[in-house]
Design a protein around this nucleic acid. Structure first.
Length: 275
DNA sequence: ACCTAAACCTGGGCGC
DNA sequence: TGCGCCCAGGTTTAGG
């Protein structure tokens, strides 16, 4: 599922359309498509940003598209003749950027089987104070410092696994990287955040950075439906230590991995070496 | 501030 | 074959 590394992979690939102009748009009206899309014509794509799991496509005229993939959202960059993936909701026809060597017509399409995600067009006044972005916590590998992390944990009595998933506290971590980071740090997901010792906090901070970096390096995890901008799969699912590995041996100690529900999520951990 | 559960959706996998 | 059930898990919302 798209978490920070998956969305970052797409963000980087989307940089190829910077400089393109939107020449037409087609969409099926639904709650997935938000804002007056018909007014987007002739806007130029200026930059591609990411805040946690949210993509922001900055446009000319002080406007922006925001895209959240949630569970099954998928952005694809297609050329004329390419097959459009199923569950398509909106297609943007683009002029090739001046820097691009592509010749045919370009289409940016959003598809979403479960319709949890969205593509929204924001006007000038809305961009500044999107509650979405305003409430987002700091981000690992970006502005989240060890000191921030220590303060955060010491002030929370919640299960560490649940705290790490709270986007208003830390942006970008989802269930997969949460489970993997806790395994790497040797910490049990059920532990109260404020019960972690200094050395454990440091270990976990590093582990979060490590799994996210590794996720980005592998192009994300395509455990299920995730595909990148060109329809390719990520490889990180081949490196899972605990996620989805119920009943299989822990790569560190051989004890069988167990699954428990925590905060309403499937939680995978080694009952022996995660303390 | 915290917690849990339900809601939003739909396909895939399983048991029978 | 195919029906019923659970599961997936990002985010919001409702209620305690």
């Amino acid at each position: 599922m798209p978490e920070l590394p998956e969305v970052e992979t797409i963000r980087r690939q989307l940089e190829s359309i910077i400089g393109s102009t939107i020449t037409s748009v087609e969409f099926t009206p639904s709650k997935v498509i938000r804002g007056e899309m018909s007014t987007i014509l002739h806007e130029k794509i200026l930059s591609i940003e990411r805040y946690g799991k949210l993509l922001v496509i900055r446009l000319s005229n002080n406007r922006a598209l925001t895209v959240h993939l949630k569970m099954t959202g998928r952005l694809s960059l297609l050329e004329t003749g390419d097959e459009v993936p199923g569950y398509n909701h909106i297609s943007f026809h683009l002029t090739p950027a001046l820097s691009s060597d592509r010749r045919g017509s370009l289409f940016l399409v959003y598809c979403d089987m479960r319709k949890f995600g969205f593509v929204a067009l924001h006007t000038k006044e809305e961009i500044i104070s999107l509650p979405f972005i305003r409430n987002l916590g700091k981000e690992p590998l970006k502005d989240l410092t060890l000191q921030d992390f220590q303060n955060l944990l010491s002030r929370s009595n919640r299960a560490i696994k649940v705290l790490l998933l709270d986007q208003s506290k830390i942006a970008g971590i989802g269930n997969i990287y949460d489970c993997e980071a806790l395994w790497l740090a040797g910490i049990r997901p059920q532990r109260r955040a404020n019960s972690l010792q200094q050395t454990e906090i440091r270990k976990l901070f590093i582990a979060i950075e490590d799994v996210l970096r590794e996720g980005i390096k592998r192009g994300g995890a395509s455990d299920n439906t995730y595909r990148n901008l060109y329809g390719g799969k990520g490889e990180y699912q081949n490196f899972f230590k605990v996620y989805g590995r119920t009943g299989k041996p822990c790569p560190r100690c051989g004890t069988l991995i167990v699954r428990e529900s925590l905060g309403g999520r499937g939680t995978f951990f080694c009952p022996h070496c995660q303390k």
